[in-house]
Amino acid sequence: MREVAVSLLRDAVRDLCLEANVVIPDDTLQALERALIEETSLRGRSILEEILANDRRARECRLPACQDTGLAIVFLELGQDVSLVGGDLCQAINEGVRQGYRRGYLRNSVSVDPLRRANSGDNTPAVLHLEVIPGDSLRLVLLPKGGGAENASALSMLTPASGWEGVRRFVLEQVCRVGPSACPPLVLGVGVGGSFGSCALLAKKALLRPLGRSHPDPQVAAWEDELKTAVNNLGIGPMGLGGHTTALSVAIEVAPCHIASLPVAVNLNCHSHRHRSVTL
């Protein structure tokens, strides 16, 4: 049994908050640079240039790339041979978020009550997704998730007869309906299968796949390509003001589901595609 102090997780979460909000990952910057080469809309090109200039300035000046530094979504892969000691895991993670958001001058964007609306004042609580894995390692991923793109996400309980065509239509209709408000060029995470709850989580996990890496199943990879092409042919473009760069990436994750069901969820992320991970 490996003993790990929860204070180690607290510090790791704090550091992830500080870095993830300031440094747009290299794969996202590369995808934006490629889009700039391929985009033919003048307005679209000018917006992509602004985005790249912003992301460079954020890195250089240690400023948040976007003022919406998001809800802190934390994925923890916890080895089953790890014993967590020295306190409460959830409290440690929230303390890491609290410290990170304060030290980094990051925006507090959590409403403690969904209907009565008061800011929690320290960006807690985080949303924690815990997965137990074999072995004695720990991996933390932070996905600061902005409200605009999260609001544009959706789930539908299709039935088996809908098939891939139904999944495809659902995603395209959702991007058409609310994509322009979600700060395109987008990163699309699509979950297919699972249950009402796990399907949404699949879509969120799909956002964490490195951009440009296809699903290992060749059929799913082909669907990803097909969907990305279809989304980029919509014409929505950067910031919804026209062009061919509507999605930088489409990642689909699939999971077994009930024989009567075909759940599909699409989680949108904006071009400010912030995430960072660490293995302890």
């Binding site: 917006i47 602004e50 985005i51 200039a53 912003n54 992301d55 300035r57 954020a58 000046c61 400023l63 948040p64 790339a65 976007c66 003022q67 925006r107 507090n108 964007s109 800011n119 004042g121 605009g148 700060c183 910031m239 904006c270 071009h271 400010s272």
Partner: peptide, 25 residues
């Protein structure tokens, strides 16, 4: 342009809190 807040901040020279400080951001 959404998501370019680090760039747009360069054009802001002065900030004054006008009302409702309890709302934070």
């Amino acid at each position: 342009t959404g998501g370019t807040g680090a760039l747009l901040a360069q054009t802001i020279t002065e900030v004054l809190l006008v009302a409702y400080p309890e709302l934070g951001p």
